[in-house]
Design a protein around this nucleic acid. Structure first.
Length: 478
DNA sequence: ATGTGC
């Protein structure tokens, strides 16, 4: 694969063959070695061939192989000439991250970490197929989740209205239509709001260990030694079913509209076609389910901390900093060739990173830019960054989303055979509770790139700016 | 990621 150096942290695959635009990969030279190990660069090329793609087919340093589109990719499409594709969003629609700040200092609560983790593990269902035994939403309530997202959860007493000001799009994507979500998807979702799921999804207690940007940290209410909590999960079985249902529709639609696909997994439809509109309406509904899910999980996190540390009321001293999707397609205004255009931006394993002063950044962060939340693996670090003007100009206001795998789940499990990863982490002062020991092995730190290296790439490229580093204390895994 | 696999 021939890559032209743009600068130390960006590389170009020049437009050739059926590509409509260049491919641009944001990465250090060293990280390209990992990226070259799978087929993800070919996927960047494949995406560049899709009709109506604008600017470039973009990839972040945490890129790896995914369904059709690479994970860690960004692709923006012209509203009139472009397409929308379920593969450009992924199976876990609105997989995303919510960061909570507390008023607690880690040195005061460190000895109680396992009590807090155990309480959260009891109160929040975790693992494949997990559901809430105490909650089965009827049709009207589930429609409320799908249309109103986090606001529905608040209306039911899960958190308060202030929380909504600290969520991307206030926790509700406009244009969601429950009629575009199949009964099967609804059935899978009706008892899953407020559950964590499996894989790399987690809830983590963390300590603020390093501050890079004092002004931005102050605005976010972050200080050294502080306890923070990260919730990383998505739309569970409902979102998965929405993706599956619409891939089937899109396979037919691609043929119907005569779209030539280098890979069937890129199946898609014109944005303005019925199939395209229906997918967006269903995807938005699943995204709203995920916003409600994280809002409800936060509610039970607040209660678990209140109970285990005997503080309270928890909604006064534990509050969301921000909640952001990293698997989603959105309609956004961007400058293309000096003209403002409305585009459909697919971010799959990529985080929105809008700059200071942007109207879609909540008022409380307008001076510093939108918080960009980057979870790492459970043994190392997570990061908070802010979006930049450069991201707006170069990447449709996007940045990376996490560490990115270097090893398949299967390979990680094999590499961990004979080892007790939970115990090893405990020896490093990190308490781990998981629904299955298999998942803990699959999620072992060795299976991931070093998130610090990923974050340095986007920071040095200027498409996000480092604010703080967080170190894990305790984690719940699926 | 996922009532994990045809």
């Amino acid at each position: 694969m021939k890559l032209e150096r743009v600068h130390d942290y960006a590389w170009r695959i020049p437009k050739h063959g059926r590509m409509n635009v260049d491919g641009i990969i944001y990465s250090s030279e060293r990280m390209l070695n990992d990226i070259r190990k799978d087929e993800s660069l070919q996927q960047v090329i494949n995406v560049a061939s899709l009709p109506g793609i604008v600017g470039a087919s973009l990839a972040m340093p945490d890129i790896h192989w995914g369904y059709g589109f690479p994970i860690g990719g960004v692709a923006a499409f012209d509203i009139d000439k472009g397409i929308i594709s379920p593969g450009g969003v992924g199976y876990d629609i609105n997989c995303g991250v919510r960061l909570l700040r507390t008023e607690l200092e880690v040195r005061d609560i460190k000895s109680k970490t396992s009590e807090v983790i155990n309480q959260m593990f009891r109160d929040i269902p975790t693992g494949v197929g997990s559901h809430r035994g105490d909650l089965r939403l009827n049709k009207d309530d589930l429609d409320g989740v799908l249309v109103d997202g986090a606001a529905w959860a608040v209306s039911q007493g899960y958190g308060n209205a202030d929380d909504l000001d600290h969520i991307e799009a206030a926790g509700c994507i406009q244009g969601a239509d429950p009629d575009c979500v199949s009964d099967r998807a609804k059935k899978r979702g009706c008892n899953q709001p407020g559950t964590l799921g499996s894989g790399n999804h987690f809830i983590e207690m963390q300590e603020v260990v390093e501050i890079y940007d004092e002004q931005a940290a102050n605005v976010m209410g972050l200080f050294p030694g502080q306890l923070t909590i990260t919730i990383h999960t998505g739309s569970r079985g409902l979102g998965h079913q929405v993706c599956e249902d619409h891939i089937e529709v899109m396979l037919k639609a691609s043929r119907k509209y005569g779209i030539e696909l280098p890979d069937k997994q890129l199946c898609c439809a014109p944005i303005k076609s019925d199939e395209g509109k229906h997918y967006f309406a269903a995807m938005a509904a699943a995204a709203n389910f995920a916003f409600a899910n994280r809002q409800m999980i936060m509610h039970w996190v607040r209660l678990a901390i209140e109970k285990s540390l005997q503080i309270g009321p928890a909604d006064h001293c534990i509050n969301p900093i921000y909640d952001i999707a990293h698997n989603i397609a959105k309609f956004e205004e961007h400058h293309v060739g000096g003209v403002s255009k409305r585009l459909c931006v697919h971010r799959k394993g990529a985080t929105r990173a809008f700059p200071a002063k942007h109207p879609e950044v909540p008022a409380c962060y307008r001076a510093i830019g939108q918080p960009v939340l980057i979870p790492g693996d459970m043994g190392r670090y997570s990061f908070v960054l802010v979006g930049t003007d450069k991201a707006m100009k170069e990447t449709f206001g996007s940045s990376c989303h996490g560490a990115g795998r270097v090893m398949s789940r299967h390979k990680a499990k094999k590499a961990c055979r004979g080892r007790d990863i939970a115990r090893e982490l405990e020896e490093q002062g990190i308490i781990v509770r998981g629904a299955s020991s298999g998942t803990i092995a699959e999620e072992a730190p060795l299976a991931y790139k070093d998130v610090a290296e990923v974050v340095d790439c986007v920071h040095n490229a200027g498409i996000a700016k480092k604010v703080v580093k967080l170190k894990p204390l305790g984690v719940i895994k699926g």
